[in-house]
């Protein structure tokens, strides 16, 4: 277990994504922070994602693999070619704080919206680049195989929904066949589709949340700090980790929903029966049992033909008993009882 835990910091320090977040979302800092980042200031949501993934791997595999590979995720936003960088953002934050201090809430709201929309746009640009690269440059996209596979194993186990099982099974198959080297099968058509669909759906939801708050709330109801949290959520929505966690969660929920449906379907409501009806069905079942024990096929066939006139004369013996039993089962609704009473000649 100690060996397992010792692998954790190595993974965290190799991730460049923390640097991006600190750089972009640290208010009042005019210059980018040095790389690598200070783990103690890493944004909480991403910590949780890593912790969840690593916990899955260690708990389920018993630390079978101590080799933690890097997951290439969207690059930092403050890159060459960006139209909005950390320095610009820091200046805008300074302006925002000054307007708040001056009590100019309307002005602060305008600056807030500029900051949020600018950052949101940059996240979108990076995400588009990431999504394109995910399919076009599979070889450069490294995956921590244990986490990937274990998350999917859990999802496949939990899921009861046919569609989810199909997609996740496809993902799992690809991974199992290539534990040591990620080849093209890992990112086959279905894998790519499942992950991208989930990331798009999560991003759409996160974007809608931001739009709605910007339009409805002023800087008191929706301050910049909260907006930045939402932007982090938007960014995370476009990552593989988040997509896998979402897929796993949805698979579990789908399994529970499916179980509830099956449970409800299985619970037939029994029709009330009188003692007379109990006696009648008992006589019918007893007669059937007597014929079955004697293997009196000819008598059974006569009764069956009364119930099902279309039955063929050369029907196999085994089918006669099955079909006759099926006809008796129809009397689970006592309204069908008279037909059986007549066929079995019960008084």
């Amino acid at each position: 277990m100690i060996a397992c835990l010792s692998a954790f910091p190595a993974r965290r320090s190799s991730s460049s994504i923390h640097w991006m977040k600190l750089n972009l979302f640290s208010q009042g800092e005019n210059t980018p922070q040095p790389f690598p980042p200070n783990p103690r200031t890493t944004p909480i949501p991403h910590k949780l994602l890593y912790a969840l993934g690593i916990s899955f791997a260690f708990l389920l595999s018993g630390c079978a693999s101590s080799t933690i590979q890097k997951v290439a995720e969207p690059r930092p936003i403050d890159v060459v070619g960006s139209s909005y960088n950390a320095a610009q953002k820091a200046q805008d934050v300074t302006n925002y704080n000054a307007l708040i201090q001056a009590g100019n809430l309307a002005g602060a709201r305008v600056v807030r919206d500029i900051i949020v929309q600018s950052v949101r746009k940059e996240i979108g640009v990076v995400y588009q680049e990431f999504e394109s690269g995910l399919f076009a440059k599979k070889a450069a996209f490294e995956v921590e195989t244990d986490v990937f596979e274990l998350l999917l194993s859990t999802a496949v186990t939990l899921t009861g929904a046919p569609q989810a099982r199909t997609n996740l099974s496809a993902l799992l198959t690809g991974t199992k066949g290539t534990r040591l080297s990620v080849d093209k099968n890992v990112f086959g058509e279905k894998t790519y589709g499942a992950l991208v669909s989930q990331m798009r759906a999560s991003r759409s939801k996160a974007n809608a949340n931001i739009f709605e708050k910007l339009a409805r709330l002023d800087v008191i109801g929706y301050p910049l700090a909260e907006a930045e949290n939402d932007l982090i959520q938007l960014f995370n929505a476009g990552t593989i980790h988040d997509a896998l966690v979402q897929l796993t969660t949805q698979a579990g929920a789908a399994a529970e929903a499916q179980a509830r449906i099956e449970d409800q379907n299985a619970r037939i409501k029994l029709s009330p029966a009188t003692q007379q009806e109990v006696d009648q069905i008992t006589s019918i079942r007893s007669k059937f049992n007597d014929l079955y024990k004697k293997q009196d096929i000819s008598s059974a066939k006569i009764i069956l033909k009364k119930l099902v006139p279309t039955v063929k004369d050369d029907i196999p013996a085994a089918d006669i008993w099955k079909k006759l039993d099926t006809e008796i089962r129809k009397a689970a609704d006592p309204n069908q009882l008279p037909t059986l009473i007549n066929a079995f000649s019960i008084n």
Binding site: L270, Q275, V278, I284
Partner: peptide, 12 residues
């Protein structure tokens, strides 16, 4: 009791 006994016989 009657309801259950009936169901048992009908459904074997």
């Amino acid at each position: 009791q009657s309801t259950i006994n009936y169901a048992e016989k009908a459904n074997n």
